[in-house]
């Protein structure tokens, strides 16, 4: 499941020691382009769609896409990480919106 990076939103994590998507990807797939300093996935086919990069991005610049071979455009799933909880917004191909909020940690 390929992550897509929005090059306008991505700032290459300039305030971090290392780009967070690059640090967190369990498949070592995210990297910074040496010329543009923007994040990218260097092997789209090897992504497991765990969404770790999408969740950790401080700029909300990464979107995880369903490969078109499996599902239609333009469905979206957007995570928002709060303190001890998460909110997810899903938008289907007909524009129907669903929202989910639940705890991810005990107090």
């Amino acid at each position: 499941m390929p992550p897509r990076v929005d090059n306008v939103k991505c700032d290459g994590c300039r305030n971090e020691r290392e780009a967070l998507c690059e640090v967190i990807c369990p498949g070592n797939l995210m990297a910074l382009d040496t010329e543009t300093n923007k994040g990218y996935c260097r092997s789209l086919r090897d992504c497991w769609d765990c969404m770790s990069c999408t969740k950790i991005c401080p700029k909300g610049a990464i979107e995880t896409r369903i490969p078109y071979q499996l599902g239609y455009y333009p469905a979206k799933l957007v995570p928002f990480t709060g303190t001890g909880k998460m909110t997810w917004t899903a938008v289907d191909i007909n524009g129907k919106v669903e929202r989910f909020t639940f705890r991810t940690r005990n107090k």
Partner: peptide, 12 residues
């Protein structure tokens, strides 16, 4: 497996 929710959305 969060993207399963997205998959269902992508199939409408």
């Amino acid at each position: 497996r969060p993207t399963f929710v997205q998959f269902l959305a992508a199939r409408g």
